[in-house]
């Protein structure tokens, strides 16, 4: 049985983003695995022990540098990985088709996991498209997954902590949320072991993918200016508190 985990290679959220040509970012910064995908990998590694002969395969669509992210995925528990090498940024519609083609060429999925969203493009949609292309059910923001003989019971977190308890037929696609687990960060032996594991590379151009429904294209990208002018509210605690309440009432007009 195969569990596929879709991971994304994203800029470190602490990195300074520089924009080039008004439409893309300077990629000479630290990239790592999308944080939500760490929950997906950790969950897959845990579920593997419940399934007979299960194998966890990490899949990524990105430039060649994403091999690092796949090494991290393998250090965190994936048995092997597939990198669909793309020489340009592609949108979520095409990414979903590339993931589907790569998974289909590799094996029959029992379960597909992914992070619920990526922290760079924040598109929140690739896993749903992948599920649709496969004809599988999908659930997002999963905070609990229980595998049963013929399905998966997923607790999907909604507004203000409410949850939908869903039963999905298998195979299915599940988007991991922050509350799913605590990511298992690799030890040095894990990292060394991961170096020996396979990263199979496929060229995007060699996969038969197209996106007839349409596309999204970035017209422009501009830095968001930080233009606040901090002013101090002085005085002792009581005076500062009164001034804060005045600001809420008279300036922000929220009271």
């Amino acid at each position: 049985m195969k569990i596929y985990v879709c991971v994304k290679h994203v800029p470190d959220s602490a990195a300074t983003i520089t924009i080039r040509d008004g439409s893309r970012i300077e990629e000479n910064i630290t990239f790592l695995m999308n944080p939500y995908d760490e929950h997906a990998i950790t969950e897959a590694a845990g579920l593997r022990s419940q399934l007979p002969d299960a194998e966890v395969v990490a899949v990524c669509v990105a430039g060649p540098a994403a091999e690092n992210t796949l090494r991290s995925a393998m250090a965190m528990g994936a048995d092997r990985s597939i990198l669909v090498v793309a020489d340009r940024q592609i949108d979520s519609m095409l990414t979903a088709r590339a993931l589907q083609a790569a998974i289909e060429a590799d094996g029959t999925p029992h379960l597909i996991l992914a992070g619920k969203e990526s922290i760079d493009a924040e598109g929140m949609q690739t896993m749903f498209r992948l599920a649709r292309y496969f004809g599988m059910p999908a659930a997002t923001n999963a905070v609990k997954i229980s595998l049963e003989a013929d399905g998966a019971v997923v607790e999907s977190e909604k507004e203000a902590g409410s949850r939908d308890i869903l039963r999905l037929t298998l195979p299915c696609v599940i988007g991991a949320g922050r509350g799913l687990n605590t990511p298992r960060y690799p030890t040095l032996p894990d990292i060394i072991k991961a170096r020996k594991r396979e990263v199979k590379k496929i060229d995007l151009a060699d996969l038969d993918v197209s996106s007839p429904g349409g596309k999204t294209e970035i017209l422009s990208l501009a830095p968001v200016a930080e233009n606040r002018e901090p002013r101090e509210i002085a005085g002792d605690a009581a005076a500062a508190a009164r001034e804060l309440v005045r600001i809420l009432k008279e300036e922000a007009k929220v009271l």
């Binding site: 519609m93 598109g123 929140m124 949609q125 896993m127 999907s156 909604k158 507004e159 999204t216």
Partner: peptide, 21 residues
């Protein structure tokens, strides 16, 4: 939370482009 669950499903059914947030 509901929009995050529904809009991508609708986009997937229609195979249509979607921009969130």
């Amino acid at each position: 939370p509901q929009g995050r669950d529904l809009l991508p499903r609708i986009a997937a059914v229609l195979d249509a482009p979607l921009v969130m947030d």
